[in-house]
Design a binder for these strands. Structure first.
Lengths: 210, 210
DNA sequence: ACACGTTGTGTACGACGTTCACATCGGCCG
DNA sequence: CGGCCGATGTGAACGTCGTACACAACGTGT
C-alpha cells in the first residue's frame, strides 16, 4: 500500500475511489482532476495514463456510483419482501416488489445525493448513451430490477399485459422526478417527514395509474 | 447601441441576454463569466458592478429561463383550450387544463433543453430556495398554473378534495422526471415520436392515479 | 466648474485541465 | 544474467477561468 517511490500499484482504482469520495460530498462537479490525483498522492498528469481526460474519469466514477445505487435498491427490495407475511399472494408480492424499487431509489437519492447526481451525470459526447446501468452485487441493474417487478405484476394480473410495454419509462420518470426535485429542485425545502408521505402517495399513484 | 467609449447603457440586461444565449446551447455551465462579458463587448471585471459573482449572474439567467418556461406553458394551455369543443363540460375542461401544463412543460424541455436545464440550476448556498418561479407574460408562474388546473379538477369533481393537498408535487415530479431523463438521462436515446406517445400515457397515468 | 459616486478598464493571482519531454520502473529477450 | 523497451509516474509549461484591486472615464448635483 505505502508507496516508497514511483509505481503505485492500482492507480486506476485509486483514482476512482478518490473521485467517489469527492463526488459524495456534493456531486460530479466536485471530482476535480487535480484534487483527485492529490488525494491519490500522485502528480496530476499521472491520471492521463489511465483516463483520456477528466470526462472519462468522472464517467468511471459515475459507473461506480450507479453500482452503489443498484446495491441500495437490492437491500430495499430484500427488506420489503422480508416484511411480507408468509401467505402473501402474488398480487401483494408483485406490488411490494415494485414499491421497493421506487422506495430504494428515493432512499438512495436522499441518503447519498452526491452519488445520486453523479450516477446520472452526462458528458457531452454520447459514449455508451444506451448502456445499461452498472449492476449491483447481485448482478442486476436497477433497470432490470424494475423490469422484473413489472413482469411479476403482469403475471399476477395486476397490470394489463398490453400496458407492459414502456411501463418502465413511466414508473422511472415518476420516481426520478421526485428525487431530482427534492434534492436539487424547488422541492428541496420539503422536510424529510412529509417527503416520505408524499413518496408513498407517489408510488400509489403509479400503482393505480399504470 | 453602438458604444464609442465607456458607458454601456444597460450592462445588467446585456449580460443576462448574453448569458441566455450561451445557456441556450447547452446549459448553465456554458454561461462562463468571461465569455459572457466578451459577448457584451466589455471587460470581464465589469460584470462585478452588476453581479456579486458568477453564481449571481447564472442565477439571474436562470430566472430569465424560468420566464421562458412559463411563457411556453401559457401558449400550450391556450392552444389546448382552443382545441376544446365549445360545449365541453367542466370535467373535460379541467382535464385539458392539467394535461396542457404537463405537455407545455415537456415541450419546452425538448425544444429548449439548455434553457430547461438552466431554469432548474441550483447554486450551493440556498438563496431564495423557496422562491416561486419567475412568471410568464400573463404574470403566472408554472407552479401557479399547475395549482389552478388542480383546483379546477376538484371543482369539476374529477379529483377528490382530500387528495388535493400535495397533488402539485406528485404531478410535477412525474413530468419533471420524464423531462430530465429524456434530455440528460438514459432515456435520451428515445426518438421524438415514441417520446410523444409515452408523454401522453404519462399524463393519463397522472390523471388516473392522482 | 468641480467634486464625487457610479461604472468600465487593465493587470495580477491562484487554480484548473491538458500537453510534453523526461525519469523510473518491471518484465522479456538475448 | 544483463540490457532493452513498453508502461507508468514526474515536473514544468500553456491557456483559460473566476476574482480582486488600483485606476480611469463618465455624468450629475451643487
Amino acid at each position: 500500500m505505502a508507496r516508497s517511490t514511483y509505481r503505485h500499484g492500482d492507480l486506476h482504482r485509486a483514482l476512482i475511489d478518490a473521485g467517489l469520495q469527492l463526488a459524495r460530498e456534493s456531486g460530479p462537479d466536485a471530482v476535480v482532476l487535480r484534487e483527485t490525483t492529490r488525494k491519490a498522492q500522485v502528480a496530476a498528469s499521472a491520471a492521463y495514463r489511465h483516463f483520456a481526460d477528466r470526462d472519462a474519469l468522472v464517467h468511471a466514477v459515475s459507473m461506480a456510483a450507479q453500482a452503489h445505487l443498484a446495491e441500495a435498491i437490492e437491500q430495499a427490495q430484500a427488506a420489503e419482501l422480508a416484511k411480507l407475511p408468509d401467505d402473501a399472494d402474488d398480487v401483494a408480492r408483485s406490488r411490494a416488489l415494485l414499491r421497493s424499487v421506487g422506495a430504494g431509489y428515493l432512499g438512495f437519492a436522499w441518503a447519498e445525493p452526491g452519488w445520486f447526481r453523479t450516477a446520472f451525470w452526462v458528458h457531452e459526447d454520447l459514449r455508451d448513451a444506451a448502456a445499461p446501468m452498472a449492476a449491483g452485487p447481485a448482478g442486476k441493474t436497477p433497470f432490470q430490477m424494475l423490469g422484473h417487478a413489472l413482469d411479476a405484476m403482469v403475471e399476477a394480473g395486476v397490470l394489463p399485459a398490453d400496458q407492459r410495454r414502456g411501463a418502465e419509462v413511466l414508473a422511472w420518470s415518476t420516481v426520478h422526478g421526485m428525487a431530482t426535485l427534492t434534492i436539487d429542485g424547488p422541492l428541496r425545502v420539503i422536510d424529510a417527514a412529509t417527503r416520505l408521505v408524499l413518496a408513498e402517495r407517489l408510488l400509489s399513484m403509479v400503482e393505480r395509474g399504470l
